[in-house]
Design a protein around this nucleic acid. Structure first.
Lengths: 119, 119
DNA sequence: TCCTGAAGTTTATCGCAGTAAACCTTATAG
DNA sequence: CTATAAGGTTTACTGCGATAAACTTCAGGA
């Protein structure tokens, strides 16, 4: 399995952990119950699988992420653009902005981000 | 089911059709066999489901798309950004560009696209 | 009249993601 | 000692997406 590929349930779970890490595993069971409606065993099953894949770690009942949020996001955005937009960022942006107009301020911020990635 | 949501297999299939529409259904069976390795019945099963959901149409053995590519792309990009980036385009761009540097020319094109969406 | 190929449906199998019940082990408060 | 809670694992069911085998219907050529 590709390292960063997350299934839907895993995705929600990992996002939850990024928001709360490091977190005690019993706390995590409570949190998953509240936010995702999961039973204890579900939490531990998903947790273990993600640990086996090197995405999370659980040491002495303290859970944290090995894969950093930014890296996983990078992977996901890249994968999506490849799959849906032929790998073309301009094609993506065009599609996305078609129904999402920008304020001047937002536009300026985006342009700054682009300039920083240029050359 | 949300109208534009496509599963993996459907996704590939619809992309194939966008590239070839309008296309005779028997031709499509051949095409799906060549490009996706599908049997005839698989093609017809997937086709029918997508027709029922109003995404494709099959009239007198002529298959075409009801949902336009640009709209489906827009939906997908939006959904992904909501799910993975909290709905934030800047967050998305930052992540994507972290490992993807741009030439001056590409940067200029992106800025143009952004300016067109501002106003 | 029979055959063939186009066009499509009915019905099923199968693997996997999602979810959890039931069980286990160890530490420790009473 | 012993009941309880923390911190898990083992095992399994279930629904659904992916895929297809087998059947049906009908038009048109030999």
């Amino acid at each position: 399995m590709e390292p960063y590929k997350l299934f839907e349930a895993e995705h929600k779970f990992v996002h939850l952990i990024w928001e709360h890490e490091p977190i005690n595993s019993t706390e995590l069971v409570k949190l998953s119950h509240d936010k995702l409606g999961w039973k204890k065993s579900t939490t531990y099953t998903v947790l273990r699988k993600l640990c086996e894949r090197g995405i999370l770690r659980n040491e002495d009942a303290l859970v944290s992420a090995i894969v950093k949020k930014a890296d996983a996001q990078q992977y996901e955005s890249q994968t999506m653009i490849k799959k849906t937009f032929d790998g073309s960022l301009p094609q993506f942006l065009t599609a996305f902005l078609k129904e999402n107009k920008l304020t001047e301020k937002e536009a300026a911020e985006l342009k700054r981000i682009i300039e920083e990635a240029a050359e």
